[in-house]
Each structure stands twice: as structure tokens, then as C-alpha cells.
Amino acid sequence: MTIIRADPAGIPHCTHNDKERELIHVDCASHIYPDGSVGIHNMCFYVQKNEIVALCGPNGSGKSTLIEHLNGLLTPSEGNIAVNGRSITTGEHSNLWREVGLVFQRSDDQLFAPTVLDDVMFGPRNMGMSVDAAKAAAMEALGAVGAADLVGKLPNYLSGGQKRLVSIAGILAMKPRIIALDEPTSDLDPVHSGMVENLIFDLKQRFGISVVIATHDLDLASRIADRICLVRQGSVFAEGTPAEIFYDPVLLRETGLKPPQIVQVYRAYCQTRGIQEDHHPLTIEDLMELIDRK
């Protein structure tokens, strides 16, 4: 994959991709909020089967607005969004929540039921499952995220990390094809952050679910994403693999982001040793291997 940059003149630039694998296609979509602020503008974006896409950008760049479009919570003022080939801009978005699960940034906004079990069963019940089937789906999802022991707890007494796991279980129980997570590791301690990171991997590897994450945690994005989309001022500014994007200092500077820690360490290492940056390590393991070799 090579870096694809948006046209500097702001002309919409929708990248060509493998239509066979395509699940979501956002075509030059714009959304203007009632107060006149621009959520997204000429946004072009796609999600393919079995991939993890990270939307990276500073606060207010339009990541969350885009994610809410994917689930049908918002519809674009202009442009088109198609999920599984169905356009959601022509009024067919009523059941989009069955296909695209959305995990909100604040778990307290998502967990509203009296118990964890009731909350995780909420989605499956809305899908028309019987109580027993919904219960089975909820138990399976809680088991998959490693939170089966929380089933009888009150959401109020869960830690931030546990709430995040239960939020993901609430979506996983609905068995969507795509899960979009808004800042999945924000406000989490390193242990729970690691658990969520592994879980996002699992969603793709074990369950074959495509994942979209909106984040400004570039360390997370560099470790787990197959593809990075840099978002700036409401549109995708550039996209490419993590190695391509995060080793391009000009791109990151233009987007208002700092490179991931590993990239910074590798750069500093190369500078102090006076050696060429001929590799693009993104994990500690990769970096250690390079250092050992040199």
C-alpha cells in the first residue's frame, strides 16, 4: 500500500479499492450540525472485510462524527454512504445498527440497564431474539471479552476498564459485521488498555469482524491497525499502512499529531548512532530485533 493523499485543493478524492471486500463506502459525505459547525466535509472513506482501520486525528477533526454516520445515527447532508452495497442516504438506514456496532467513548453513556446481563442483552432483544437466546448471546459475548464474572454486577460498581469490556460485549452480542469504537482506550489504565487492545485484535482474528477505531492514541493505532486514515478538518487527509504514515513526519506535522513512541525512539537511536532509518519498526519486539542486528 502506498500513501494516498487528498488533493491539496480540497477536491474530493475517493480512493479506488477492492469492491469485492468492501463493507462500507463513504463517498464525499458532508455533515453540518444544526449550529452550523462542520462535522465532516467531503469525507471519503471505506472499510473492507476483516481489517482494522484507525481514524487518527486531533480533537474536533471529525472522527466521532464519521463513526456516528457508519451506524446510521447521523445521515450525511451531502454525499453518499453505502453499507454492504446499500445506500443509507436514501432512507434505508433504519436497521444499520444490526450490521455496524458502535462502542461509545464514555461507557457510562452506553451502560444504562440495572445489571450487566440486562445491558448486554439489550441489543439482542432489540434484534428480536427470545429472552433465552438473548441471554445465551450475552453470556457468550461476556465470556469472549473475559467479563463473564461480571454478569450479575451493577454497572455502577464496575471499574472503567470493566465498563469498557462490558460495553464491547453489549455490541459483540449483536454479532455485527463491523464494530466501530470511539477512543477505545481513553481513560483506561495500562492493564485494561492492553486487554481492550487484545480484544480488538480478537474481534478481527477470532470473529472475523472488521473494526474501525477513532483514536488520537497513535501508539495503539501503530500496533493494531492494518490501515491508518489521517483525519483533518472533517475529511481523510491521507491514508496508508501504519509504517508508511507514522514514518512520514511531514504528514503527521500537517495533521497536528506526534509520531508514536516507538517511532520517536527509533529515530533518536538512528540519529545518535548516525545510521540510516532503513526500517520501520512499530512494536517493541521489532525495535529490539533491529537493535540486536545492528
Partner: peptide
């Protein structure tokens, strides 16, 4: 408003129950 949005995102249609 945010809670309502999160409920709509999971297909809320006006009622929910408890399995307890």
C-alpha cells in the same frame, strides 16, 4: 442525549426489560 443516542445505536425502539 448521549445515553439516548447510545440506545438508538443498539436498536432501541421504546421499551426494554430485565431477564432477572
Amino acid at each position: 442525549e448521549r445515553v439516548h443516542k447510545a440506545m438508538i445505536a443498539r436498536g432501541y425502539s421504546g421499551s426494554f426489560g430485565t431477564a432477572v
